[in-house]
């Protein structure tokens, strides 16, 4: 395993997780998962929340870990599955559905790429008692692919296509992930961004502005654009 930074912890959790399992997790901790996880992103959220379809799984009894992911996977003519890699997609676009999704699914772990804003954590995740785990580097598709023991089922393959379908995986030692948001809504990404921001002003010092400006929502490089 890669070298941990000073004080960084590693934990292994069984999914579904209990409140006790996740209450002491700190941001920056490395997490591996065992148990059952499912994919769900805009296709699933729209279908359930906007179109009113029933979630085709017994959630959260089966799993309370929702992965923002589409696998690189294929269904063979005999109905068997070939899962190559799995990688997360950027989560911030899904904030608008999360409140309702937490209510309907009982999810306690959201796994994805890049986290959400700390205001999303405070307003959506903290009331739901949920944490956010980010994938590492992004593209650790092969390492995560190794952690998938079995495809339990695939729902809405015809309706949503391979990439947006709901894949249900049995996983073992599935990771690594890093805790971005704990149960208090702290965010590792925002903590790190604060450090990066300290240097931004000096980077632009002495560089004159272009002749033609642009309309835009922000000119403050300390801002996050998500």
């Amino acid at each position: 395993m890669a070298e941990l930074s000073e004080g960084q912890k590693v934990v292994r959790l069984q999914v579904p997780v209990s409140h006790d399992d996740i209450k002491d997790l700190e941001i920056g901790t490395v997490v591996y998962l065992d148990g059952v996880i499912y994919t769900g992103r805009e296709g699933v959220y729209k279908r359930v929340i906007e179109d009113g379809h029933e979630i085709p799984l017994d959630l959260p009894a089966v799993s309370n870990a929702n992965f923002h992911c589409s696998p690189a996977a294929a269904i063979e003519p005999d109905g068997s599955y070939n899962v190559g890699g799995v990688t997360a997609t950027a989560s911030f676009r899904f904030a608008k559905w999360m409140q309702r999704w937490f209510e309907l699914s009982g999810a306690k772990i959201i796994i994805g790429k890049g986290g959400m804003s700390s205001s999303d954590y405070r307003e959506l995740f903290v009331p739901a008692g949920a944490i956010y785990l980010t994938t590492v580097g992004y593209g650790t598709g092969a390492l995560l692919g190794r952690g998938i023991r079995k495809v339990r089922q695939v729902e809405w393959f015809e309706e949503l296509g391979n990439a947006q379908a709901m894949w249900v995986f049995e996983v073992e030692n599935f990771g690594p992930f890093i805790v971005d948001s704990d149960l208090d809504g702290n965010s590792l990404f925002e903590q790190q961004a604060e450090q990066v921001n300290k240097n931004i002003e000096s980077l632009y010092q002495g560089l004159k502005k272009p002749a033609l400006s642009r309309y835009g929502e922000t000119d403050d490089r300390n801002d996050e654009l998500i």
Binding site: M1, A2, C69, S70, P71, A72, G84, G85, V86, T87, T89, G137, Y138, G139, T140, G141, A142, L143, L144, G145, R146
Partner: peptide
């Protein structure tokens, strides 16, 4: 780096996207 090694060993894509 570990991921690249895993991809080559298993002959699976290094990134699923």
């Amino acid at each position: 780096m570990e991921n690249w090694d895993a991809a080559t060993e298993d002959r699976r894509p290094m990134c699923a996207d």
